[in-house]
């Protein structure tokens, strides 16, 4: 279970992941557990993980142009400088929303998710319908999340791989002049960093 990550296969499962998937399969077959209930438990414990780290990255990018520039050029290093790095050596790329372009990230594999900045992926992110529809009908998916974009705004869909993971940098909301990083970070939701919504309005 050490770093046995074959780079030839995106879908290589490490030993521990396979063992736990086996437990889940067997226990579900026997009717002892319900996968949806597992996610509810994980949510409870997960309050300390993830999305806050990503919010920190976004808030810093909003308030520090040099950091934003670094994040654009080398997201892995810029994010690593804040102490968040993936232990499998995966690379990060930050994709910035602009007035012209909205970014959306997908992947069917829970391993293709920037855990170090977003924590564990939400259930819907791992679902096959999200993956296929995010590619074929991104505006439709966004509408279901309550986000209707103007026609002239382009939507770019990024498919994560085991080695390259994306973080969406939402646009800074208007009316936040003079806010410090901590306060800005409260506007950055997990979904806004996946691209299924925008940052909260102040």
């Amino acid at each position: 279970m050490s770093g046995d990550h074959s780079h030839g296969h995106d879908n290589h499962l490490d030993d521990m992941t396979a063992r736990v998937m086996a437990l889940e399969t067997v226990l579900t077959e026997k009717g002892l557990v319900d996968p949806a209930a597992l996610d509810a438990i994980i949510d409870t414990y997960e309050t300390k993980v993830g999305p806050r780290n990503g919010a920190h990255v976004v808030a810093k990018a909003w308030s520090d142009p040099d950091f934003a520039d670094w994040l654009k050029r080398d997201a892995t290093a810029a994010i690593g400088s804040l102490g968040y790095s993936g232990r499998q050596g995966e690379h990060m790329r930050a994709v910035f929303n602009t007035d012209d372009t909205h970014n959306l990230v997908v992947c069917t594999l829970c391993s293709c998710y920037p855990w170090s900045v977003l924590g564990l992926p939400p259930v819907w992110y791992k679902s096959p319908p999200y993956r296929s529809r995010a590619v074929s009908d991104p505006r439709g998916v966004l509408a279901e999340f309550g986000l209707t974009l103007p026609e002239e705004k382009a939507v770019r869909v990024w498919d994560s791989t085991a080695e390259l993971r994306y973080l969406v940098i939402p646009q800074r909301p208007a009316g936040t002049d003079g806010w410090d990083e901590d306060r800005l970070a409260t506007l950055v939701t997990r979904n806004s960093m996946i691209g299924t919504e925008e940052a909260l309005q102040p």
């Binding site: 063992r19 226990l27 414990y45 993980v49 232990r87 992926p121």
Partner: peptide
């Protein structure tokens, strides 16, 4: 769990934990 560090460092860890909690409940 009362600090700023993640409790789980990979999804399988969270799942192993959750499975245990469920089996105990069951």
């Amino acid at each position: 769990i009362d600090n700023d560090e993640p409790v789980f460092h990979a999804p399988w860890q969270a799942k192993a934990f959750a499975l245990t909690v469920k089996l105990h409940e069951a």
